[in-house]
Design a protein around this nucleic acid. Structure first.
Lengths: 139, 139
DNA sequence: GTACACCCCGTACGTTGGTACGGAGTCAAC
DNA sequence: GTTGACTCCGTACCAACGTACGGGGTGTAC
């Protein structure tokens, strides 16, 4: 069972044009075609697109998503390259996690501070992510 | 002690034009000016820009960053609006956290799978974020 | 008092990530 | 065998987020 562009788009909640765009950009693999030229997508495509969209919302660019996706089919006895890339992505994710947690705490305390907290507090939300940006080392 | 555009830009690791752009967009507050028209930034501006950049890397748009920043100066006995916004942002962050953790696990298991794992495994990385996207409820 | 780095502004250009258009072919149903 | 929804493709357009240009004023060090 395969899906047409329209079906995939609908199921994945994206525009048909987006599928073509992703295909052009090499993010979606080219699906097989009928004699007529119509694309026939495997159903997993829908999950794939969910993954792409969600990754974007986590701050990954399409280029990075492509990298992440490339990790799927590492040929078993994985290249060192792949492992290195995985490690890099893990580090990136850990940093994001740390910052998100930090931001979360700040927001949480902000909500409380709305009620309590007399005056003149340094802003927790700015503080939550400041002071390092790129320059913090993982090790 | 105040900072010129050039100083701020250098310290924050962004282009001078970016500062002007953020100002135009209302993300950076307009700094005081000298008689000559030169901007005089308070030093916190640097932290502010770090915050902005980092927030973007966490998948927030400039519009969303603006919202986040607006939460700084809720007028003590905070408006319901502010609290609502905070709650919305918290939910957003929680979703991001969940997905990042999930993605992290998948990558972790991918790295192991490179060594072990005989054949024909469903791809963990796609699975990690698929199956819901928007449609998952928090409660 | 001028040299050189720095700042001003408006405007144009560039990249990323799509969206829309529109003419033509296809498919399923009637 | 024609209607109407769907697909094809190329190309143009769009919004978000900057980045570059270029002509002119400023500041300060010699």
């Amino acid at each position: 069972m395969t899906l047409s562009t329209g079906k995939v788009a609908k199921l994945a909640g994206v525009n048909v044009e987006t599928l073509r765009f992703y295909e052009r950009e090499g993010i979606l693999p080219e699906p097989p075609r009928r004699a007529s030229g119509y694309r026939e997508y495997p159903p997993e495509t829908v999950e794939l697109i969910h993954f792409i969209k969600r990754s974007q919302e986590l701050g990954f660019s399409l280029k990075e998503v492509k990298e992440l996706l490339s990790l799927r089919k590492v040929p078993r006895r994985a290249s060192k390259k792949a492992t290195t890339l995985v490690d890099a992505k893990l580090a990136e994710i850990d940093l994001k996690l740390r910052d998100l947690r930090s931001m979360r705490e700040a927001l949480e305390s902000l909500r409380c501070a709305c009620a309590s907290n007399g005056s003149s507090s340094a802003c927790p939300i700015i503080e939550s992510l400041s002071g390092r940006s790129e320059s913090e080392e993982p090790g």
